[in-house]
Amino acid sequence: MAQSKYQQIKTHILAHIESGQWSQGDVVPSENQLAQSFAVSRMTARRALQELADQGVLQRNQGAATCVASLKNQSSMLQIRNIADEIRERQHRYRARVIVLESQEADKQIALRLGLTAGSPVYHSLICHWQDEVALQLEQRFINPLLAPDYLQQDFTRITPHEYLCSVAPLTEAEHRVEAILADALTQQYLAMQAGEPCLRLQRTTWSRDGIVSHALLTHPGNKYQLGGHLTFQPSQAQKPAQTLEK
């Protein structure tokens, strides 16, 4: 799977940081240097640097060189809670039911989400997560098999997809979109809801250093979940909110 030019630049920078070649405070190549090295426009190089800065990996100051951000910033770059941990932390019993675990051909929409071509094989899972005797989340997930080749061999009643993917393709980036929807047929069936009842749906796309890992639709009964966030401000940079879903 070919990466876009700006994603190649991000992968290059992340690889140097993860390997220890570049440490906290080290200056990274400038926009001009990256543009020349990767044969791209300065705008493309700027996009890569700015996205890494927005994630807390780099620190950019006007009129100064771009540096590797502090470890404190990087540790809070991406905070995605595991639903099994959330439920157990509330002193409740967690269990999961695997409804679908299969390989299928990507339609145009899923192919676009995963950066693949239509018709490419993708892995698909549908899992219902329970708190005690209440169905709390319906998770529909599409996986890039190139980055998680053993996904279909996992027992997702013992480990969540989030836990497994973090172990084989550590997350470096995520995109969230939250929307209020009415319960569709699938949601009604597995979350024991009635037609027209409100739901909270989180669409989440995640990246590792090698590309897009997964696209997930996480649907919750509207009366059982709320969206929360926490903002951490640094002297020279505002971190993005670390979004979690809490009962």
Results as ranks from 00 to 15, higher is better:
174 A>H: 08
13 I>K: 00
155 D>R: 03
241 P>M: 06
114 L>W: 02
198 P>M: 12
57 V>N: 03
61 N>K: 15
86 E>N: 11
233 F>Y: 15
98 V>A: 09
75 S>L: 15
202 L>D: 06
28 V>F: 02
57 V>W: 02
71 L>R: 11
5 K>I: 05
86 E>C: 14
220 H>N: 01
122 V>E: 03
31 E>V: 10
107 D>L: 02
185 A>D: 09
168 V>S: 00
202 L>N: 06
203 Q>R: 10
140 Q>T: 13
200 L>Y: 03
92 H>V: 11
86 E>A: 14
186 L>A: 11
92 H>T: 08
227 L>E: 10
83 I>N: 11
84 A>T: 05
205 T>M: 08
189 Q>F: 00
195 A>S: 13
71 L>G: 14
148 A>M: 09
153 Q>E: 15
163 E>T: 05
169 A>Q: 06
18 E>Q: 14
220 H>T: 10
151 Y>P: 03
37 S>K: 14
102 E>D: 13
141 R>W: 02
181 I>P: 02
9 I>F: 04
169 A>R: 01
157 T>V: 08
30 S>W: 00
125 S>Y: 03
110 I>Q: 05
234 Q>C: 10
204 R>Q: 07
64 A>V: 06
184 D>T: 08
197 E>L: 02
202 L>S: 04
130 W>T: 09
206 T>M: 10
20 G>I: 05
163 E>N: 10
74 Q>A: 11
90 R>T: 07
181 I>Q: 10
159 I>D: 08
228 G>S: 09
88 R>T: 13
25 G>T: 06
203 Q>Y: 14
51 E>D: 11
2 A>K: 15
177 R>T: 14
126 L>A: 09
70 S>C: 08
155 D>I: 00
225 Y>D: 10
100 V>M: 04
139 E>L: 15
6 Y>R: 09
177 R>N: 12
12 H>I: 04
118 A>S: 09
74 Q>R: 15
95 R>C: 12
